[in-house]
Design a protein around this nucleic acid. Sequence first.
DNA 1: GCCAACGTTGGC
DNA 2: GCCAACGTTGGC
Length: 136
Amino acid sequence: MASHWLVKSEPDTYSYADLERDGRTVWDGVRNFAAASHLKSMKIGDQVFFYHSQEGKDVVAIAQVAREAFPDASDPTGKFVAVELTPVRKLAKSVTLADMKANPALADMAMLRQGRLSVSPVSAADWATILKMAGE
DNA sequence: GCCAACGTTGGC
DNA sequence: GCCAACGTTGGC
């Protein structure tokens, strides 16, 4: 059974437009155990909301897991892992953090409860709610 | 194994 | 640019 996730990226560093341009990217640099354990749980084909932090602060698109967790080559300690993502599509309209906070149905979302978590799980219900908010 | 200090992230 | 939240590190 496929799961859903949300990843954050600062668009100045790596935006969804960059992912579309590249076609595929290694999602590395995660240095947080909670986030890393979520990366390890990702399966090929799982869909992932792509959230822009700092600039925009909104969910802009959907990506997909193309390669499951493998050692993060950029991590000298070898403790952390990376996955590979491919773009799926942009949302009809982005869903802002303010919109998500304002929706009581999303109050239990991991990313809202723990703002700094850079990779978090999204329940099937929350996934559907956010898609609806995006006009899909 | 606990806890204080420190660093980083991200919203405002 | 500031500040709060939280995870990690290191000393004891």
